[in-house]
């Protein structure tokens, strides 16, 4: 398979993740859609690594995985804290910072 197929698939997955972030309002689902976008980036990184022919892109993808895991842990901690305070889990209601 040509590398460009992987790149187009990665762009499609990134777009689906962006749609999810824009139309969903539950913070949990928004985090899941962020995962989709990060994984699309990972796929592009690994595809470019194969295209160039060295493994540096794969190391980059591994670091992206680490950062994604950290983001998930902190985000889920925030969701649990929001839930404990009995606030609504809806990003349209949690907009105190919007001013």
């Amino acid at each position: 398979m040509n590398i460009s197929w992987y790149i187009v698939l990665s762009a499609l997955l990134f777009t689906i993740g962006a749609i999810g972030i824009l139309i969903r309002r539950s913070p949990m689902v928004i985090l899941l859609c962020l995962e989709l976008m990060l994984n699309a980036g990972n796929l592009a990184l690994v595809a470019f690594s194969r295209e160039v022919g060295n493994g540096q892109g794969q190391v980059f993808a591994l670091v992206v995985m680490v950062v994604a895991a950290c983001e998930v842990v902190v985000g889920l901690g925030l969701i649990v804290a929001i839930f404990r305070r009995k606030l609504p889990l809806d990003v349209d209601d949690l907009r105190e910072l919007r001013g």
């Binding site: 040509n2 590398i3 460009s4 790149i7 187009v8 762009a11 777009t15 295209e51 160039v52 022919g53």
Partner: peptide, 19 residues
């Protein structure tokens, strides 16, 4: 936009299996 930007780039190896 992403597809056009990547596919129209000068990366010649995109249309191959890679080295």
């Amino acid at each position: 936009e992403i597809s056009a930007a990547v596919l129209s780039s000068a990366l010649k190896a995109l249309g191959t299996h890679g080295p």
